[in-house]
């Protein structure tokens, strides 16, 4: 479970906070959409939740442990084993094949052989079983995003964070991504927290957190 207490974030001194004293929690297995207009602070909040940004005021607790008081080594382990991250722009390593990209977190954990069958299964599930040995430039945008999702899931993380995962895709590919998220949320109980400004995709989540100027204006189940 992730607990957020009095979370504030300011980029420039003397300017207003972009995240203002937020308090909420995310239960294990939740499917959460972070929505809001551009500049509302939803991506900033996602990075704070995902431990990528640890410069803030307040607390972000992972199973009761404050991410800022954790040892560096533990943070790296947490990111490697319990967190998956999907960026808007796919961010695959161009030198590696789709399968090698997916296995990168496993390579870090020293679990290549153990994770290989699951990586192949993930490729199957995202519909790219026949493209395992393709390099990223040989894949379409939608395919690259599906590889990035498979990579984020290969360690069966407890939490999957996604920053506008459909932002760069057409509605068909975007729809496919959302289906994959739903499937993993249901099959593996992975908590999925994603940022979107697309109301249609936001409506697929079971919980919606809406931000305006760094403040939560709505937090509750989809209506």
């Amino acid at each position: 479970m992730i607990v957020v207490q009095n979370l504030s974030k300011r980029f420039v001194p003397n300017l207003p906070d972009v995240i203002k004293k937020l308090n909420f929690s995310i239960q294990d297995g939740e499917f959460v959409a972070l929505v809001g207009r551009s500049g509302s602070g939803k991506s900033t909040l996602l990075y704070l939740l995902s431990t990528l940004d640890r410069k803030f005021e307040g607390e972000v607790l992972y199973d009761g442990q404050d991410v800022r008081s954790m040892k560096e080594e533990d943070i790296h382990k947490l990111r490697n084993l319990q967190i998956g991250f999907v960026f808007q722009f796919h961010y695959l390593l161009n030198e590696l094949t789709a399968l090698d990209n997916i296995l990168l977190p496993a390579r870090k954990a020293g679990q290549i052989n153990e994770r290989l069958p699951f990586a192949l299964e993930l490729l199957q599930k995202v519909g790219l079983a026949d493209k395992a040995n393709r390099l990223p430039p040989q894949l379409s945008g939608g395919e690259q995003q599906r590889v990035a999702i498979a990579r984020a899931l290969v360690m069966r993380p407890k939490y999957l964070f996604a920053d506008e995962p459909t932002g760069n895709l057409d509605s068909f590919n975007g729809d496919g991504i959302m289906k994959i998220f739903k499937q993993f949320n249901q099959e593996y109980g992975t908590s999925i927290i994603y940022v979107t400004h697309d109301q249609e995709f936001a409506s697929r989540a079971s919980r919606r957190i809406e931000l305006v100027d760094g403040k939560i204006v709505f937090d509750g189940p989809q209506q």
């Binding site: 995902s50 990528l52 560096e72 080594e73 790296h76 382990k77 947490l78 990111r79 490697n80 084993l81 998956g84 991250f85 960026f87 722009f89 961010y91 695959l92 390593l93 990168l104 977190p105 870090k108 954990a109 990579r151």
Partner: peptide, 16 residues
Amino acid sequence: RRDIAILRSMGFTPRD
């Protein structure tokens, strides 16, 4: 730089 960001986000350490 982008690759570095990805690697760090998946738990690779500064030393890595």
